[in-house]
Amino acid sequence: MKSAVIVFPASNCDRDAAVALRDATGNQPVMAWHGDRDLPDVDLIVLPGGFSYGDYLRSGAMAARSPMMETVADRAAKGVRVIGICNGFQILTERGLLPGALLRNAGLEFVCGPVAMRVEAAAARFAPSLTAGEYVTFPIAHHDGNYTAEKDVLDRLEAEGRVAFRYVANPNGSANDIAGVVNEAGNVLGLMPHPERAISQVLGGVDGRRFFEGLVGAMAAA
């Protein structure tokens, strides 16, 4: 199982993501610079959290147009799994690989801390170690996590079972309490909370480890 983490200017969760992937896959992930185009064949790509380009213009806007994102979009179209975490989720929506957009938090404040979420059908399909209806806790740390989309898009996401995680207590005003969604094919996942920060009891929990291990296990079995 080979994986890659895309590093943008001002990514700050790239090394956390690398540790989570290394632990789950047993292999050190490739760290790929956003300005390059070449990426070795990998099974899983993570767009990490951070504040790429200082969140200038719109969060994730500039990163979404970087050369490496051309490659990521090509790979996603070929079925390679892609996970965008926090700023990575913003980059995926800005790129159009996921529907909707992430606006300024409704309460205007940066929100930070562990949040409980209900696992929805799409997350259970993505990482079968998780069961739809159970609750997991990942940390959040964001200013622009207020997920929004046109009503017909939201209705479609719900009807097609493409919501991955839903907040128990909505921290940012996101539509339908959405914390994460998948694309139509189900191989691209974006979520605001940070599973890579929940991979050890020392860090406050292991739900993120379960997520990565279940995902990698399912991919290895496929």
Partner: peptide
Amino acid sequence: RKLLANPVM
């Protein structure tokens, strides 16, 4: 279209 505005919002 390509960068400055996000048509979603």
